[in-house]
Computed example of a mutant assay.
Amino acid sequence: MIKIIRYISAFTLGSLPILGFTQIPKQYTQLAPAGWMVLSGASGDLNNDGRNDIALILEQKKTDHPLSKENGKALHNNKRKLSVFLNTAQGYTLTAENLTIPVAEQPNSCLLDPLAEADGVSINKGVLSIGFSYFMSCGGWEWPRHHYAFRWQNNHFKLIGFDYYSFHRANGEETNKSYNFSTMKRKEIVGGNMFESHKTQTKWNNFKTNQKLTLTNINFDDFYSQFEY
C-alpha cells in the first residue's frame, strides 16, 4: 500500500500538518485523470480473477470554490474522490467511484484533515478498505475513527463492514462499535478506557438499513443518515 505520510502530533493544537509523499508508482499516476493528483493508492486482486486491481484516493489540483481563512491563507478544500480500476483484458478500467471523500480543510472548522492520521486505502484478501480520522484541534474532546470495508459482489462493491472507534482525550473513555452489513449485527465493546485497564463487556444488537450500501452510493461525509445504527 502507498499512502500519505504526514507529520502530526495528535495532541498539539494548531494548523494542519505539512504534507509529504512517498514515491507514487508511475502506474498509479497514469490512471489519474487530467487535473487530479494521487494522494493514496493500493493494489490487489478485488474480483478474484488473479490480476491485481488498483484503488486510488485522488485530489483535484485546483479547487472549484476558492476560499480564504481568517489569516488570509487559501483554504485547502480541493475535491477528493476514491476511484477503483479493475484489471481487465483491455487494461485498467474505471469500475467504481465515490465523490464524497472528506476534504483537507472545511470553513470555520477545527477539524484536521481526516486522511492525516488515517490508514488511507488498502486491499487485503479481496477486501477494499478505507479509513478516516476526525481529530478536532479545538471544540471537541472525542477523537473518532471510521473504517469501511467493501467486497466485490454482483458487479458492485458492497459495504460489508463499518468500524467506529473513539476515545475521550481527557478521561480516556472509549466507544467501540463494529457493524456487519452481511449479518446486520452490531458488536459493541463497553467499558474500555484508553488510559486505564478496565473490565469490558461485549454487547450484540441488530441494526437496519433501508438501502444496499455500495462504494458508489455511500456518503462518507454523512454516513449516519444512511442506516439506523
Rank of each mutant, 00 (worst) to 15 (best):
S109M: 06
K158G: 07
W141I: 12
G172D: 09
T93L: 07
F157D: 03
I130V: 11
A89F: 11
G139A: 07
T95L: 03
W152K: 08
P144M: 05
N154I: 09
E142I: 06
P114R: 02
R169S: 14
C110H: 12
N176I: 03
L99V: 06
Y164K: 15
H168K: 11
N124W: 06
T88A: 05
Q153E: 15
A170L: 15
V121L: 10
L99I: 02
C110T: 11
N176F: 07
C110R: 07
E97H: 06
G126D: 00
L99W: 10
T88R: 11
S109L: 04
N87C: 04
G91W: 00
H156Y: 05
K177G: 05
R151T: 09
W143E: 13
Y165E: 10
H146G: 09
E173G: 13
S178F: 04
G120L: 03
L86Q: 11
C138H: 05
Q153Y: 06
D119Q: 12
Y134K: 09
I130Q: 00
S122A: 09
F150H: 01
W152N: 02
W143K: 10
A118D: 08
Y148Q: 02
Q90F: 12
S109A: 08
L128D: 04
E173V: 14
F157W: 02
F150L: 02
Y148E: 01
V84L: 02
G91Q: 08
K177P: 01
G161H: 02
G120K: 05
W152M: 03
F85R: 10
M136W: 15
S137A: 12
N124D: 10
Q106R: 14
V84W: 01
L86A: 12
H147V: 10
K158P: 05
G161R: 13
L115G: 08
C138E: 10
H168M: 10
Q106D: 09
Q153I: 06
W143M: 12
V127P: 05
Y164C: 01
V103C: 05
W152R: 07
L112Q: 14
V127Q: 11
S166C: 04
Q106N: 13
Q90T: 15
F132W: 09
D163Q: 08
